[in-house]
Design a binder for these strands. Structure first.
Lengths: 117, 117
DNA sequence: AATTATACATAGCTATTCTATGTATTGTCA
DNA sequence: TGACAATACATAGAATAGCTATGTATAATT
């Protein structure tokens, strides 16, 4: 299923912050984790994630350090800051508001659009 | 609570389509309905809704006709098309995917960010 | 008479994303 | 050993599109 640009955009930051809340990680692994979490529905490109990570770091939500993989490949590890954790909580509350609003009307129409969710 | 731009953008179209699935409506009333549905959290401006309605009509999701209020004021009534109903169902499925993905990780971190949702 | 609420419209500024492209190393398979 | 796939990160800037700001008009209310 193709997921609309707007949905991808809205979920990108909360997803990355939540993934880093599990423990530090790095770009390539985050992409695979998103694919996994979404059951293959969300397939991010690296060219979209790296700028997002840079943005998050600029905003102080994450902090990066260079490291190495077991095999010696260079990696940039990201971890959540306190500010990042706060932002995650804020976004969860906001998502909740929007989700409730949508659910409040999706199943009340005289002819509900979607059956059997 | 301030709702992030991205969340507002992602929910705008599905919300309007769902509102029109309840029956035909018009700009001003849609804004009030959104405020109501969200418990006052989502406060759309008219300058943001009208262009959205025009876009939806351009895409064939809604159809408009000029009418009049009881008091004689001119109004543009919008109703959902078949294509619009399909789009609503599509967006509901997509939202479901994204929402499940987020919920799948939000409450699994070694230190869950948000308590007591 | 003045203000607020109702009702719709759009030019074009502004912000922002992500596509496209580039670099480099390691693993694998034929 | 050569080629390809996978791993790993970076960024310029094109493209676009959403929304702010602004304008118009009438009815209701104070």
């Amino acid at each position: 299923m193709k997921i609309d640009k707007d949905f991808v955009a809205a979920s990108a930051t909360p997803l990355v912050l939540a993934i880093l809340n599990e423990g530090e990680s790095y770009g390539y692994a985050i992409i695979k984790r998103v694919r996994e979490l979404s059951g293959g529905e969300l397939q991010w490109t690296d060219g979209m994630l790296y700028p997002l990570l840079h943005r998050l770091e600029r905003n102080g939500y994450v902090k990066s350090t260079w490291g190495k993989s077991e095999t010696g490949r260079r990696r940039k590890y990201y971890r959540l800051t306190d500010r990042g954790l706060e932002q995650l909580a804020r976004q969860q509350r906001q998502w909740q508001v929007v989700d409730s609003t949508l659910r409040g009307i999706w199943f009340t129409g005289k002819d509900a659009a979607l059956q059997g969710i």
